[in-house]
Design a protein around this nucleic acid. Structure first.
Lengths: 342, 342
DNA sequence: GTGAAAGCGCTAACAG
DNA sequence: CTGTTAGCGCTTTCAC
């Protein structure tokens, strides 16, 4: 691609300024000349150099989105939403993987951070949040963090009320008459895990109950399986389990079934996230759905607002999760004497 | 970020040229001066403007990767591999979602395509392949297509031998003594679906068998469930099923179990792709694994070779899939009389 | 070793 | 309506 605006100007007989005007849809170009330019552009197969444009305009038209994990339904949906909304607003989306591994080296390996390649960045659920926020602030790059780890963050964030999610999940179980309710949390390193757990405990407390069992584990099918397996072996089987995410829930279901328990007849299980697969599982998983579309939309709007200076660059949004009742939870039939460990 | 190379020059007492040299690690800078510049850079919190660099250097240092679907283990792994390999070679990765929806409008909405924002592009499993290839070629952007749809493509491609995969899957079933083998394919629109099916039929033919049942369906749990359900209702139950992908396989397993059949005791099921979840399912799914890491690596190497002109820009690589035997397939116990439909 | 000068391709004033 | 004149911030000859 060596053909530049000058070539087009020559070919069309116009000046480069006129070509530039046509390129930018300026209304002040005579239709005949406009056509001449357009023809030349097509003939020459010309397309403007974006680096030059960016340089002179001072903005890239690109919004960056950093991601840590792929293959997750929630993130997946957020990414797609962000992509669409950005497009509607004339921005392009560049996704980049945040490499959490090289915590030692101080230079962020991410190209979005490294230079001024974007007009703004949406940081999706980073683990080393502080580090990125600090870097972004130092470089003066406008950003929004989605699913952040810091309570009372002093930078713009979009979050889900995980406390509420944990509370609602537990409440659902409570309403079904369960009293022997266990919880398996994801890594407590994550604020979201701690909040869900807190919601769980508080919901129980409001009914004068305490957790039947409580395990601080990690996200994943294996973890759920392992914990449930251990509980069963130790003779402690709750009538209901609130799993920190759908993967844990799946593991719990499998451990239960492997030991002759039926879900939800014998034990109810509720997950968290509403992954695609959760609806396809057998039994279809009751779960707490994250408002992924909303998260994506608000992230985009918040960032664009910052870029356009229409709002204070300090928004901390907290969205509400939603209980999705499917087949893995049912009315409690078993031991209903409160908190007795039998 | 208004501080530029000029500010650094002034602050450090050097010329902008020297600053530039330091920036580019030129060896011809006196150590003392180098330090002065470095200090000024740090104090001013300066970082070079990438647009300006790109403009003058004629290259961006960015490789684009277009993706159509997220949330797929195979793609996920490819993306991660590409990211890492690129990084090792001094390139940054920008991922972008290919919007297949706007087939009517002729302008590709993808920012990677639209302007010269990347040095090269890796196109991952596009549906409207021809369209993108044409555009890329017209714009003169170096590219590689991974998992392409065209047979005998005249552009660089990295593929998996889907015929072989279908053949191996079927062969595995054959070796277990199955003769009543069914296949549920994904959309025949995809070359991969057709090739897997062809491998299936040929493997059968070599044993003098024909498909017990054959359904051209679509990828997804529901499809698999539906097809299997229909077969069961019509009284035609194969002893083994080769599913077009793991999702279909999961649906098949569910339909089977819902109707009192056990997997693999009564019916063997083999999937395709080896999604993360497949290993966590119950029964753990026997499947054909795509060599995702290899695909990613070869894609990067092929593209870098093109960029460095070390190889002809025409490579059509065909990688081999791998049979992963787990729990969902077993020796055939049932009807072993060849092809009799009972 | 270092700096002055000349662009990279484009857009934004300003004239005409 | 159109063209001339300046840069945007950086790298790259080419002198010194």
């Amino acid at each position: 691609m060596k053909v530049n605006i000058f070539d087009v100007a020559k070919k069309s007989g116009m000046s480069i300024v006129t070509v530039s005007r046509v390129l930018n849809n300026a209304p002040t170009v005579r239709e005949i000349n406009r056509q001449k330019v357009l023809d030349a552009i097509k003939e020459l197969n010309y397309s403007p150099n974006s680096a030059a444009r960016t340089l002179v305009r001072g903005k890239t038209g690109i919004i960056g989105l950093t991601v840590t994990a792929l293959g997750d339904s929630v993130f997946d949906c957020i990414v797609k939403t962000v992509h669409d909304r950005l497009k509607q607003n004339g921005y392009f989306l560049a996704i980049s993987i945040l490499d959490e591994s090289n915590g030692d080296t101080e230079e962020a390996s991410n190209f979005l951070f490294q230079e001024d390649r974007v007009d703004g960045i949406i940081v999706l659920s980073p683990v080393q949040e502080d580090r990125y926020v600090a870097e972004l602030e130092r470089k003066g790059i406008p950003f929004v963090v989605v699913d952040n780890q810091t309570e009372n963050a002093d930078f713009p964030t979009i979050n889900v009320d995980n406390y509420k999610g944990g509370y609602e999940a537990t409440n659902h179980l409570l309403e079904l008459g369960h009293t022997h309710i266990a919880h398996i949390s994801g890594q407590v390193l994550f604020l979201s895990s701690r909040e869900r757990q807190k919601g769980f405990i508080d919901a129980l407390a409001e009914e004068g109950l305490t957790p039947y069992l409580l395990a601080n584990s990690r996200f994943g099918v294996r973890s759920g399986f392992q914990v449930m397996q251990d509980w069963i072996r130790s003779g402690q089987v709750p009538t209901a389990v609130f799993a920190g995410d759908d993967a844990i829930a799946l593991g719990v279901v499998q451990a239960l079934e492997a030991n002759g328990y039926r879900v939800p007849e014998d034990v109810s299980v509720i997950g968290y996230d509403d992954q695609y697969i959760s609806e396809e599982l057998n039994p279809r998983l009751t779960t707490i759905r994250q408002p992924a579309v909303q998260m994506g939309e608000h992230a985009v709007f918040a960032l664009l607002d910052i870029l356009n200076h229409v709002k204070p660059s300090q928004t901390n949004l907290r969205l509400q999760p939603q209980l999705i009742v499917r087949e893995s939870t049912a009315v409690c039939k078993g031991k209903n004497d409160r908190n007795r460990r039998d």
